[in-house]
């Protein structure tokens, strides 16, 4: 298993290089100009100068290799320096700069990441943790009232987009009932209990919207998997041995049902990083999703490129995680 993991980690490098190149070429082909958002009064020759300053005059492979060097060598060295406090680790020279803000992309990401992790990460966690018991119980009491109700909720969760559920929740809980704020205040710093309480209150609505989506998806998946296993012969064997229903369900069936479910949960994990673009917009959470969308509007190639490649890396990495977990859960799968 260790050899397998190491080999796969090593294979991630060429995979990501190809992905990065593909993204770069796609951005290259797409229309748009980093200067398009500048005021029209700026004359054409000044624009040319600005383009040259951003290095846009160079051939595409030079720009790609420059981005690669900055992304893979310079930025990590700065992060390492910041993490260890040893300033001489950081490589001197230009950094990976956002066209739009003229600040390093890494700094932008570090500014936006906490909001996204709190809101999107928490909703993924909440959705998953609720989905497991709900899915298991629905399957165990298939067609019971709980299951029927669960089907209704998850159909709603599936089919109602967040730009519908979000405003409905805002209308009911913020405007009519006045329980929660409508807008997420990113400037809020948690220093005492009252500010912590404010933070919790402003997180509830966006987390609820996103949890519903995750909950609907994962609970249906858990239910299907548990149902599939409840009909297996080994369940009858366990009952014939005199095992309690709790053991039958939570030991014999659950372990088998988790095999496909864990894969789905692991593969869904990278979406936490990209954030939820629509929900972040709705609640004015300036997270990664919002950064990505504004960068795309502004043709901010370095930022879009960096975010996309990090996302790709996370997808590839969590694929590996899913495979490893699969091997750990199912003894029939051995990779070496």
């Amino acid at each position: 298993m260790l050899t397998f993991t190491l080999r796969r980690l090593f294979l991630m490098v060429p995979t990501l290089l190809v992905i990065a190149l593909a993204i770069f070429l796609l951005l290259e082909l797409s229309p748009g100009d980093p200067m398009s958002q500048l005021p029209l009064s700026i004359p054409e020759d000044v624009r040319e100068g600005l383009r040259a300053a951003l290095g846009l005059g160079d051939p595409w492979y030079v720009r790609f290799l420059r981005w690669l060097y900055l992304f893979a060598v310079v930025e990590p060295s700065h992060m390492l320096a910041a993490a260890t406090g040893l300033d001489n680790l950081a490589i001197e020279g230009p950094r990976l700069i956002s066209f739009q803000t003229r600040s390093p992309v890494a700094d932008l990401i570090m500014q936006r990441l906490p909001q996204t992790l709190w809101v999107v990460g928490l909703s993924y966690l909440v959705g998953t943790l609720l989905a497991l018991p709900i899915g298991i119980y629905s399957a165990y009491r298939q067609y019971g009232w709980f299951d029927q109700f669960g089907v209704l909720i998850s159909m709603a969760g599936f089919s109602l987009p967040s730009f519908f559920t979000g405003p409905v929740l805002i209308l009911v809980f913020s405007i009519w009932l006045g329980w929660f704020p409508t807008v997420y205040d990113t400037m809020l710093t948690v220093s005492d209990w009252s500010s912590f309480w404010l933070q919790v209150r402003q997180m509830i609505l966006p987390v609820a919207v996103l949890s519903l989506l995750n909950l609907a998806q994962i609970s249906r998946f858990v239910r299907a998997s548990v149902l599939d296993n409840l009909g297996q012969d080994y369940v009858r064997t366990a009952r014939a041995k005199g095992m309690t229903e709790r053991v039958v369900l939570l030991v014999h069936v659950l372990r088998n049902s988790m095999i496909p479910v864990v894969t789905v949960i692991a593969l869904g994990f990278p979406t936490v990083f990209t954030g939820a673009i629509i929900t972040e917009q709705l609640f004015r959470v300036n997270g990664i999703g919002q950064l990505l969308i504004t960068s795309i509007y502004a043709s901010d190639v370095p930022t879009v490129m960096t975010l996309s490649v990090i996302f790709a890396a996370l997808v590839v990495f969590f694929n590996l995680v899913a495979d490893v977990l699969y091997g750990l859960l199912d003894p029939r799968i051995r990779y070496d």
Binding site: D233, Y234, R255, L329, D330, P331
Partner: peptide, 9 residues
């Protein structure tokens, strides 16, 4: 073949 639980020893 199917009466034993595949994931337990």
């Amino acid at each position: 073949m199917t009466s034993l639980n595949p994931v337990f020893t």
